[in-house]
Design a protein around this nucleic acid. Structure first.
Lengths: 308, 308
DNA sequence: AACATTACCTGACTAAAGTCAGCTAATGAG
DNA sequence: CTCATTAGCTGACTTTAGTCAGGTAATGTT
């Protein structure tokens, strides 16, 4: 373990040394870092002040002044938001776009300088290793927590989930037919609704509700397309099972549609086995169950190594 | 190419996001970042103020105050340097060591949090990829430049080089017998002495001097043990050959001792072939030569892809 | 209609980080 | 011995980054 920590720390050291150079090169344009960062954030996906302030996590007064300084430099314009005259939309001026392009250029140059001295085969190895680190660090940054099913994040996830089902199911999907009224049962004290977040953004969800006789049902399991391939679904499923154990359930069931082949293979790998139809979900083609607490050495509520 | 840059930039983004969290956790100890960083640097390898100031690249006044603030907190002591009473040696007090250990703990915790959520096989992959990125980024950070052979860096490298030869040669090595008087010829305008640096520290060297009739001789090629395996020697050799081309040479020669097997294989891979003894170096067992400018499409002075 | 909340702005303040000029004491070079 | 240089210290100053307490206009809630 100690050698793992050493490896990570030595990686951190070298990477901050190299990547930290970006701040210096940004400062080279004679503008404080805060302004430069704000400019980049505006260029990335504009929007109104409130959104940006939230994303950057800045104090309202401080943020206001930062924006004003960019405006005085002629890099951005502020317009009243259509519909809500309190809000102000931010947009880059032509000069602002040019300035942003200059910062992009600096970032590109740093990136080039990091790979350029290497020969082609080394470059290839470096890029592959970077992709691997990136994907695994992203996976490790994922958090899973219980949230209100009526909350913004949960609603966002469910909307995306339903939209995807409508696309993928052969006969489409109608949320109303899917017994959506039962969703409220996915809440404490007899169930829960887990939201997966990556850097604060919701990227997945899954609900657990109580059936009769100590059995749980897992529903609404979804992972955003851009977050797939990171092992998120596996961890989410394990987290739901942990919750089920916490709630004293001795088994969990779920159903799935034939269009969702990867889901089926995930369930089988996680130890689920096919059972008879246990509900009247019109969209279900397969039904699975997994007995919980089979490992007597495992304390309830303690995460399994795979889930955390 | 553009996709390489994108990959590097996306890597940079994710890594700064994760590793940048270290600053926040350092601030959690109620001490400004500057002080925390200085403390870590002192703990790493102490030394006197001048050395540290240079390494951190800080203004003398600012640095002095930083040091005083740590002293007032009882974390370090200052003593007159033995021999030069202007200098002051810095040492951690017991309290300083404890405080440093606390910061180390924070770094360790960050490292653990970066790998802990992953399952064992993912952890293994992440650590391997980190090691790969680290080694290749280090390799890419290497710089090669012409320096005075009498300079500090050159002297340091040559000392290390001679020490290593003395260890590895069967009959030892005596620098005086090695025609060291010819070293001065490894300088402009008829030769050069290249120093390889990694983050400013000299980690290798190699000299080129002019023999009769447009032929160059490569001598004193050395790479520090801790920098081996990064392809430094290959790049250094290519850089020396570039220099030779710049100086109008049409071939370079070199000799080597039988104890240096890796050197021989490097030379062969780089296109050198064995020739008859061309000098009276008592330590030489093999002699090599490579014809230059064989590639007519290559402009003189332009680096080959392998060398930069 | 009354009241609370939200979005943005302003003024007053602070700490961190750093720059610059000049000072003293010790050391090194000629 | 003289003079320049070096190592460290001090005072005065600036910029950046931020906090906090209010203020105003628009919007939502009851």
């Amino acid at each position: 373990m100690s050698s793992s920590v050493d490896q990570v720390r030595s990686f951190n050291r070298i990477v901050t040394l190299r990547v930290g150079a970006l701040d210096d090169s940004y400062l080279g344009r004679g503008r404080p870092l805060g302004q430069a960062r704000l400019l980049s954030e505006i260029a990335r996906d504009g929007g109104d002040m409130r959104l940006l302030r939230e994303r950057l996590g800045l104090d309202s007064g401080y943020f206001s002044r930062l924006v004003q300084s960019l405006r005085k430099q002629g890099l951005i314009t502020l317009k009243q938001h259509a519909g809500d005259r309190r809000r102000r939309d931010i947009a880059l001026t032509q000069q602002g776009q040019a300035e942003h392009a200059a910062y992009e250029q600096l970032s590109d140059e740093l990136a080039v300088s990091m790979i350029e001295p290497l020969n082609p085969s080394q470059q290839e190895r470096l890029l592959a290793a970077m992709a691997e680190v990136e994907s695994l660090l992203t996976a490790a940054a994922v958090t899973i927590g219980c949230e209100r099913i009526g909350g913004d994040a949960a609603k966002f996830c469910l909307t995306q989930y339903f939209r995807e089902l409508a696309e993928r199911f052969e006969g489409g999907f109608d949320a109303a037919r899917a017994q959506a009224e039962k969703d409220n049962s996915m809440a404490p004290p007899t169930g829960c609704f887990l939201v997966v977040r990556l850097f604060g953004r919701p990227i997945g969800c899954g609900g657990l509700r109580s059936l009769a006789s100590g059995t749980g049902e897992i529903k609404r399991m979804w992972v955003a397309p851009e977050a797939r391939g990171l092992g998120v679904a596996r961890r989410l499923l394990a987290a739901l099972e942990d919750k089920a154990v916490d709630l004293g359930m001795h088994a969990v069931r779920l159903d799935t549609n034939r269009a969702l082949a990867q889901a089926q293979s995930l369930y089988r790998k996680a130890g689920y086995h096919a059972i008879e139809r246990f509900n009247d979900n019109p969209y279900a083609d397969f039904w699975f169950e997994k007995r919980l607490g089979g490992d007597p050495g495992q304390l309830p509520g303690k995460s399994s190594p795979i889930s955390r």
